[in-house]
Amino acid sequence: MGENVQTIPGGAQPHKDRTLNRQVRTLRVKMVLLGSSGVGKSSLAVRFAKNEFRDTSPTVGCAFLTQVVHVSDASLRFEIWDTAGQEKYHSVTPLYYRGAHAALLVYDISKRETFIRAQLWLKELEKHYIPGSTVIFLIGNKGDLAWDRQVSVQEGQNLAHEKGLSFIETSALSGDQVNELLLDVGKIQNILKVPLDGSRHQTEYLTVNRINAHFSLMYWISGVKK
């Protein structure tokens, strides 16, 4: 799956001029997209990685995508994990967001039901939440459909505030606020206790207890409902 380099206006710097003598740190950032079917998760993934709209570029795969962004003295290598939105797969999705730096919980501002569902998702996320490990972003997508809005900006903000999440309204169609979101996610290195240093021992080299938790979770999941 392709990887292109993008520079975010206002905040990102081309790395060539500053880092000739210094090694550029590559920071890996895993983002997981969560939310009901049809809210625009896959479209957001394609917008992040290719800066294109999915409907007009049907050949771009959108399950696993990467995007490298240069910010000051580091390169952020975003990994975008799309998930199956169908209801029946909800119980297995906790497996996806283990080890994620950011979980993007998406709803469609023109469909109230997806906002309600997002709140159910949050409850589920809280169950497996490891403090200091994953930052949750609440995202109201399809911001271009403001004329058909069923969820107000205020409602989204309130929910985010109540749960201590970051909040942003985006449009995968127009690309509005998508880069801002990426930058916000990139900033989580200041929020996370574990710095997003590319080194394994600091971020990704998760302790054994943690992976065991990951896979005992798998058995917990398979035990659920039966």
Partner: peptide
């Protein structure tokens, strides 16, 4: 562990675990 939770291989492995679950 980093290869299981990040990277393309990790993504497909996670999907396989989901499929089994």
């Amino acid at each position: 562990p980093s290869r299981l939770m990040t990277g393309e291989d990790g993504y497909y492995f996670t999907n396989l675990c989901c499929a089994v679950a």
